[in-house]
């Protein structure tokens, strides 16, 4: 395929190739994810960015086989997860975990915290009896809670604390890969910073590889080593995040970065405010999916899906006009 994978050096833990997912709905098929390919280097945090309908959540679910993919492959440590039968997949479930957005619905309200974390341990037979209790206590401590919390129910905790419990559950099986689906979006700003710090600490300490799904460009810029920009199910741009933020090449990425609110009134940016709405995934535009809102669209954009072109090592863009349009988007003017 034409897409250039982008592991910035080092070995690749997960390699997603031509992932597609179509849902069949009453109003017709929806292409939630279409021909998505990217690599996740071991120990790296890859940000998947997109607005609603971009397919970022579905892509994450497909990789974990929580949603069955329609096409493609996801090679995890040499094995294509999509080809594994259910039984063999169970063993791999231990190696990849998920953290959710909503701290309320992600914990079973009828289970004690200790049982929620214990279930992960029991499912894979990792420890029993006192060792199990010790492990739960250790996990709780690790995420900044106390071992006594094991006896409580989720409703006794705040949103941030619940998110910590969800993280402890994911870590209980000692995974290598974590898909974090908007893990801080539902939290207050001050709590968000606490959880972001925790995620980083754990990532470093345990050498975790992460797929960080988010709509918050500020958080992604801060946290992620690589970034994948999705729009209507397709990747429009991907690359090392510093490179993409400093030098966005796709008109969509540029618009996104230029309009993301920055808490500094002195930053004067040339805002690219996109016109119109995100098209329905039921009826995506032909050719480039972004062309209906793109200020630079020309006739040719409607004809074919633009191929990914490499613009620098690991940085690729799916835009036929990217070469003519290379300009920086943000300039800071100090008053």
């Amino acid at each position: 395929m034409s897409q250039s994978p982008s592991p910035a050096g080092g070995d690749v833990l997960l390699s997603v190739r031509n992932l597609s997912k179509r849902f069949h709905t009453a109003s017709g098929p929806v292409k939630a994810v279409e021909d998505v390919s990217f690599d996740v280097g071991r120990g790296r945090i890859v940000g998947i960015v997109g607005e609603s309908g971009s397919g970022k959540t579905t892509a994450g679910r497909c990789i974990l086989r929580l949603v069955e993919p329609s096409e493609g492959e996801a090679v995890f440590d040499g094995v294509d997860l999509f080809k594994l039968p259910e039984r063999a997949l169970r063993a791999y479930r231990r190696r990849m975990q998920i953290i959710f957005q909503d701290p309320y619905s992600s914990l079973n309200p009828r289970m004690r915290v200790g049982d929620i974390i214990g279930e992960a341990i029991d499912t894979h037979g990792l420890a029993k009896g006192a060792a199990r209790q010790a492990r739960i206590a250790d996990l709780l401590t690790r995420v900044g809670l106390s071992p006594e919390h094991a006896r409580r129910y989720p409703h006794e905790f705040s949103g941030g604390q619940r998110q910590r419990i969800g993280i402890a559950r994911a870590l209980a099986v000692e995974p290598e890969l974590i898909v974090a689906d908007e893990p801080v979006s539902a939290l207050d700003v001050s709590v968000q910073a606490q959880v972001l710090n925790l995620i980083q600490e754990l990532q470093k300490e345990l050498g975790l590889t992460m797929l960080f799904i988010s709509h918050d460009l500020t958080v992604v810029e801060y946290l992620c080593d690589d970034i994948v920009v999705l729009y209507l199910g397709r990747i429009l741009e991907q690359g090392p995040s510093r490179e993409v933020y400093a030098n966005p090449r796709h008109p969509y990425t540029k618009a996104l970065l230029s309009t993301a609110p920055i808490p500094d009134p002195t930053v004067r940016r040339e805002r690219v405010i996109l016109q119109g709405d995100i098209p329905s995934p039921l009826d995506p535009p032909s050719g480039c999916v972004f062309r209906t809102r793109c200020p630079f669209a020309i006739e040719a954009c409607a004809r074919a899906v633009p191929p990914h072109e490499s613009v620098s090592p690991g940085h690729s863009v799916a835009c036929i006009r990217q070469a003519e349009l290379a300009t920086p988007a943000t300039q800071k003017v100090t008053a």
Partner: peptide
């Protein structure tokens, strides 16, 4: 469809246990 059931599936918890426990 709730995330805590998804979490259980992601952990590999068998279906019958998801049915009863969750």
């Amino acid at each position: 469809e709730l995330p805590y059931v998804e979490a259980a599936r992601a952990l590999g918890v068998p279906t019958w246990r998801i049915m009863t426990r969750h």
